[in-house]
Simulated scan of single mutants.
Amino acid sequence: MPQARRESSKSFQGVCVYQNQPIDFILPGISTHLQPAPTSGKQITPGHSTEHLQTDIFVHEMARSDSHESLMSKNISDECNLEQSRSSLLGGLNPDLYRIGGLDPDEDDDFPDNHRGRIWFKVHYEEKNEQLSVNLLKIKNLPSRVKGSINCSDPFVRIFLLPDGRRYVQSKVKKKTCNPRFDETFVFQVPNKSVQDSSLRLTVFDNDRGKRHTIIGHVIVKLKDVDVNSTEPVLFCKDLEIEQDEPPSESGEINVSLCYNPMIERLTVTVCEAKNLRWPDDLPLETCVKISLFTGSKMAKVKKTSIAKKSSQPNYNESFHFKLNQSSVAISHILLQVNLAHVGNKGDKCLGRVVLGSHMFARGRALEHWITAITTTPHKQVRQWHKLT
């Protein structure tokens, strides 16, 4: 009996044998995530040597360790490949998903000094329907309104059909961006016989929070350069040109603001200031401004500013209200005259004048000023300089 007790309590390093059944446990120095070697149905008896047991366990654990390291190496390699693929999109969007169709992916972004912006648009003419389609795509590198800051611009585009000049369409205003994307399409009805003599003028404005419209630049495309027989739109990419300064007026300039309220049918004309006024014999005299409202060829109302004392840069800053029915807008105009006050016994003498009104009476900036104030942005003050003639 004592001998049997000694046999049953006999222990080996790595495996304990009790009642002829193996009891496994983890050897020190082997990582805990590894499973012990299976016995493969073999039973360990007291007759097995300790060295054989240790050798079998070591060989099996080394094989499992090599397999585990290989698996971990593969996982690390896969993770590196995944991170590498993600790194290209980390912190931004994939530009390939947001390209505008028809643009060259390798488009040139090298802009010269004092660049005013570059505009992309497509033009297509349908001869059968006599329709001219203009697809406004985008603009890049517009100047910022505030020097030293970026994206301080609220651009929009007006597209004029020339030589008429009074027919134009306007894009939406893009807030706080110098690289706006529009993707808007506009249609003009143009007879076949007029296509070759017509042109498109795209003028880019800065809205400046709705207070006023500052011209950034423009481009002009002659429709005779567009293949009217093409079934595909023609893509244009042009740099904006700065408005060419007209030669200074010999009579000076006047700054006027227009505001029309269609609800109460009231036109407000504000005479702000004048500059570079020139008098006969270069003698500065007193001046005033006469404002006349015409409906058709009939004078409806006349008003006059107070007299500005001898100055070539007078400030008037006076507002005048006129009753103007919506039905009469298309046949009305405003005549502003800068006069020398009380010249001899003949009354006031005209130094210069400007006409603001519909296409029947005005052209160029004067017509644009009228349309913007009356039609495009009612209820808002639209202020602009005009040359006196």
Score class of each variant (00 low, 15 high):
Pro2Asn: 12
Glu7Ala: 13
Ser8Arg: 14
Ser9Val: 02
Ser9His: 13
Gln13Leu: 12
Gln19Ala: 08
Pro22Ile: 13
Gln35Ala: 05
Gln43Arg: 09
Gln43Glu: 10
His48Asn: 07
Ile57Asp: 00
Leu71Tyr: 02
Ile76Cys: 01
Asn94Ser: 07
Tyr98Thr: 14
Leu103Gln: 06
Leu103Tyr: 00
Asp109Ile: 00
Asn114Trp: 05
Ile119Gln: 02
Asn129Thr: 14
Arg145His: 04
Lys147Thr: 07
Gly148Trp: 02
Ser153Tyr: 00
Phe160Thr: 01
Leu162Gln: 15
Arg167Gly: 00
Gln170Val: 14
Arg181Trp: 00
Asp206His: 05
Lys211Asp: 04
Gly217Ser: 05
Val221Tyr: 10
Lys222Trp: 02
Lys224Gln: 11
Ser230Gln: 06
Val234His: 10
Ile242Trp: 00
Glu246Ala: 15
Pro248Ile: 11
Ser249Phe: 02
Ser251Lys: 13
Val256Trp: 00
Arg266Met: 11
Arg266Ile: 06
Arg278Val: 08
Val289Arg: 05
Val289Met: 04
Ser292Ile: 10
Leu293Gly: 08
Gly296Asp: 01
Pro314Asp: 12
Phe322Pro: 03
Phe322Asn: 10
Leu324Cys: 15
Ala330Val: 03
Ala330Arg: 06
Ser332Val: 08
His342Ser: 15
Gly352Asp: 05
Ile371Ser: 11
